[in-house]
Nucleic acid binder design. Structure first.
Length: 844
RNA sequence: GCGAGAGUGGCGGAAUUGGCAGACGCACUGGACUUAGGAUCCAGCGGGAUAACCGUGGGGGUUCAACUCCCCCCUCUCGCACCA
């Protein structure tokens, strides 16, 4: 319920703050006036502000409201500061929930999706965001995914796409495979099911061929991106430099290739550990008497789910294959083991075990009574023996290392690398943790992968002229949750474009992260039907100057998008290296200390809040309660506070309305001619604009910017009651009120527009310019100076701003309160900070 | 274990980067107006015998002066984690 305002002052001009009425009115005006439509034929500098587009799940939630309110403030602010701003919005519209809803409602996923989009679009409009809706896109529209399919074909031609049969991550609940990035601690990123391994032929994007560039360019982002996002990406790419070394298998014409970053410990390698899935394993165990037991062990391990297999307290286990390999530097025989902790995906799937200098190898060696050989002695004087309790991984001097004994291990690392390379026993390599991106999904509601399997020609790309491969409208979703495509003859049956024989369409669709990897580029030219986007438009608008979204996309979406931009650049579609120059990761919206969720029953519905308080109040609360990167705790009383502030401002302006004139914010006037209170207010106004501009622009600290606005409002309240009537009173008041409305307008645009127009302005605030403070107005005649004695605050005095250091010294020493603390003591020193502070240092 | 960040009143949070700790707001207390107050206005609001003094997670240090810089430690949040 909106509290009914009946107080006399409030209604005296007949205007009551009615948020919904005002908001409707201005939203309509903006829409009819195409106020936020952007075009690249413009001489102003461009500014691209983008918020991560939403999945059309049904309703907007508070997380969206916060995200989009932050973005809208940036957009409106930059517009007022003279930029040509593009601020688009669209829908990340493919994905599994639509399929589930379709099964439930016995309809088509498209229907649910488009209904949600229209509902949520109305919600966004009610919040008054300054989007250029003419660029709206939905990724499930063939007009969008057609170009994605084109990119797929271009990638294919360039060797950036390949199909391979591989053990892949399978989510038993989503009935589809997942990319490595989508498996979090062994469970599905979306539904938390434990992920299984499955052997399937899948389509991969060769993101690893950009691994080095993706890593290197992180440095160029360090100014504009949060450090932790960069750290997470670095970590994910996981570069390590080392060597690949070959170990000849005894009695076989085969070598085992290992990857190591500690080639300096090669003399200490006493056995070999292979991943159970290593390709040589079958051959190595063929003649083993233990063959069956080993095979059982291998199938046990490889069938294990990711969680238990990679958990820390998993017991290290292995089996001896019965075979040996030869240490290339000392010719020693090393037993070959199969070990459950060796990962086939990383490095070469084989590890040279150096128990003295690697904790895992040590544990394994102790368990199976394998030799431990120290080859690096620490330089602190302690002497390690093979009895050591924990492995030593630090630096030191080489021992037991043939002719290299006595060398520093770091130098030796270089020496042994050259030594091995010269003899053809190994080579220096760089290894990445990053894997290629599996984009195949066994789902219906996604962009079809444009490939046809021909009985004769094999997989054949769909010719570009036949794009898009459209998702069938007549598909019926099977009850069991599988994709309908593999059973849909009308979709499936097709002629081979190369030889004309019967072919079958690929039924896998693309990972939905593919759509979100390039949507920001499509916004530059969203209605283009000839090509993905016009080169001129993309060159003008991209990169995104400010990207805003949740930290949960720190790796997935941001890494994929960076990869896409680099790949599209190399295909000649654009000329930038990175998509997002600046990134702001906003915190979550919490209620009772937890993320809002239906299951916890702590959801606050934005619609309800808008109906109760209006969009301006909801926006104000979201921006005021916490700085953007931090989590925001929802508070019913704090939103009341935001509403109260807007009412208070409304009352102030309505009361003063008869006096106010459209003089503009920070209006020019003869400062010296003003009364003292007028000077004070004018100075406060200009100081506030200085502070607010700084907080908003440089730091996106909207919370402190709003605090600054509130202070200015408080100052106006004081002024209106205390100042005398004078020739300049109206100008001073009008300017200050105009500054408040202008500065607040990016945050609460509707109420500000309304009061602005009531003040008599013709040009709407949304098209006005951000005020410039006059540094002359910042000058105060009197300043407050703090007096300390031995660093402790003792007094405050008001002095003329231009007082000299000497005068200040005298004033401070003669200050009554200061005298109490210095009398009878010797003044050792006086520290003067002009206009601020005097510190008198005394001793007894 | 590695990486990133945080720790300030009853609460959310400020502090121009070394110069008045607690801006702004919420909550609370007292008062005014009032049939009424959940509206509004005024005042107060870190602790403390309202005096000294003590206070920014703890302990040291640098400095005339430390929330801020340096060293050690504790706690919490997030991410990664048997990565060879």
């Amino acid at each position: 319920m909106i509290p009914l305002n009946t107080d006399t002052e409030f209604t005296m001009n007949g205007y009551r703050y009615n948020p919904l009425e005002i908001e409707n009115k201005w939203q309509e005006k903006w829409e009819l006036g195409h106020s936020f439509k952007a075009t690249h034929k413009d001489s102003r500098p461009k500014y691209y502000v983008l918020e991560m587009f939403p999945y059309p799940s049904g309703r907007i939630h508070m997380g969206h409201v916060r995200n989009y309110s932050i973005g809208d403030v940036v957009a409106r602010l930059k517009r007022m500061q003279g930029f040509n701003v593009i601020h688009p919005m669209g829908w990340d519209a493919f994905g599994l929930p639509a399929e589930n809803a379709a099964i439930k409602n016995k309809s088509h996923p498209a229907r649910w999706t488009y209904e949600n989009i229209s509902y949520m679009k109305a919600e966004l409009k009610k919040l008054g965001y300054s989007y250029d809706w003419s660029r709206e896109l939905a990724t499930c529209h063939p007009g969008y995914y057609k170009w994605e399919q084109l990119f797929f074909l271009k990638f294919m031609k360039k060797g950036l796409v390949y199909r391979k049969k591989a053990p892949v991550n399978w989510c038993p609940k989503c009935l589809t495979v997942l990319a490595n990035e989508q498996v979090e601690a062994g469970v599905c990123w979306r539904c938390d099911s434990v992920v299984e391994k499955k052997e399937l032929a899948q389509w991969f994007l060769r993101i690893t061929s950009y691994a080095e560039e993706l890593l290197e360019f992180l440095d160029s982002l360090s100014q504009g991106w949060p450090e932790r996002v960069i750290a997470m990406q670095k970590n994910w790419i996981g570069k390590s430099t080392g060597m690949e070394i070959n170990f000849q298998v005894e009695g076989l014409d085969q070598a085992i290739r290992v990857f190591t970053t500690r080639q300096d410990t090669l003399f200490g390698a006493t056995f070999m550990s292979l991943a159970p899935e290593h390709e040589l394993v079958p051959e190595l165990i063929r003649d083993s008497p233990d063959k069956d037991r080993i095979a059982g062990f291998i199938s046990n391990v490889s069938r294990m789910d990711q969680i238990s297999r990679t958990s820390e307290n998993m017991e290290k286990e292995g089996f001896f294959t019965g075979k040996y390999c030869i240490n290339p530097v000392n010719g020693e025989k090393m037993p070959i083991f199969i070990a459950n902790f060796v990962l086939v995906e990383y490095g070469t799937g084989a590890v040279m075990a150096v128990p003295a200098h690697d904790q895992r190898d040590l544990e394994f060696a102790r368990k199976y009574h394998l030799p431990v050989k120290v080859v690096v002695q620490p330089e602190d004087g302690s002497v390690l023996s093979s009895e050591l309790e924990s492995a030593y991984a630090g630096p030191g001097t080489m021992v037991n290392s043939g002719q290299f004994t006595g060398m520093d291990n770091e130098q030796f690392k270089e020496a042994i690398s050259d030594h091995l390379e010269q003899r053809g026993l190994g080579k220096k390599t760089v290894n990445y943790r990053l894997r290629d991106w599996n984009i195949s999904r066994q789902r219906f509601w996604g962009a079809p992968i444009p490939v046809i399997y021909c009985q004769k020609c094999g997989p054949v790309p769909v010719p570009e002229k036949d794009l898009p491969v459209v998702l069938p409208q007549d598909a019926k979703m099977p009850e069991d949750g599988r994709s309908p495509l593999p059973d849909l003859q009308s979709f499936l049956e097709v002629e081979c474009p190369e030889c004309g024989s019967p072919g079958r369409r690929e039924t896998d669709t693309m990972d939905t992260f593919v759509e979100s990897s390039w949507y920001f580029a499509r916004y530059a030219d969203a209605r283009n039907e000839q090509q993905p986007f016009d080169r001129e438009a993309v060159d003008y608008w991209l990169p995104v100057d400010q990207y805003i979204g949740g930290i949960e996309h720190a790796i997935l979406h941001l890494l994929y998008s960076r990869f896409f931009v680099k790949a599209l650049r190399d295909l000649g579609y654009m000329d930038i290296d990175e998509p997002f120059s600046n990134l702001l990761t906003q915190g979550m919206v919490l209620k009772d200390g937890a993320k809002m969720s239906k299951s916890k029953g702590n959801v606050v519905d934005p619609d309800e809040m808008i109906n109760k308080y209006g969009a301006d109040t909801v926006r104000l609360f979201c921006l005021f309660a916490s700085p953007p990167e931090k989590d925001l705790e929802w508070s019913d009383s704090a939103i009341e506070g935001a509403y109260r502030f807007l009412n208070r401002l409304w009352r102030l302006v309505m009361e003063l309305l008869p006096e106010l004139k459209p003089v503009g914010p920070c209006a020019d006037m003869d400062h010296d001619a003003l009364e003292p209170e007028e000077k004070a207010l004018r100075t406060k106004e200009h100081e506030s604009i200085q502070k607010i501009s700084r907080d908003m622009n440089d730091k996106f600290q909207f919370n402190t910017a709003i605090a600054g606005i509130m202070e200015l409002v408080n100052a106006i309240y004081l002024f209106k009651d205390e100042s005398k009537d004078s020739p300049n009173r109206r100008e001073v008041l009008s300017s200050a009120v105009s500054s408040v409305l202008t500065a607040l307008s990016p945050i609460t645009p509707h109420i500000c527009e309304e009061m602005w127009s009531k003040m008599g302005y013709d040009c709407p605030l949304s098209q006005s310019l951000w005020p410039k403070y006059d540094s002359r107005a910042l000058h105060r005649e009197e300043v407050l100076v703090v007096i300390q004695v031995n660093g402790k605050l003792r007094s405050r005095i008001s002095v003329p701003a231009d007082v000299s250091r000497e005068e200040l010294k005298v004033l401070a020493q003669n200050d009554e309160k200061a005298i109490k603390h210095i009398s009878g003591k010797e003044i050792v020193k006086m520290v003067i900070v002009p206009q601020k502070l005097v510190n008198i240092v005394v001793k007894d």
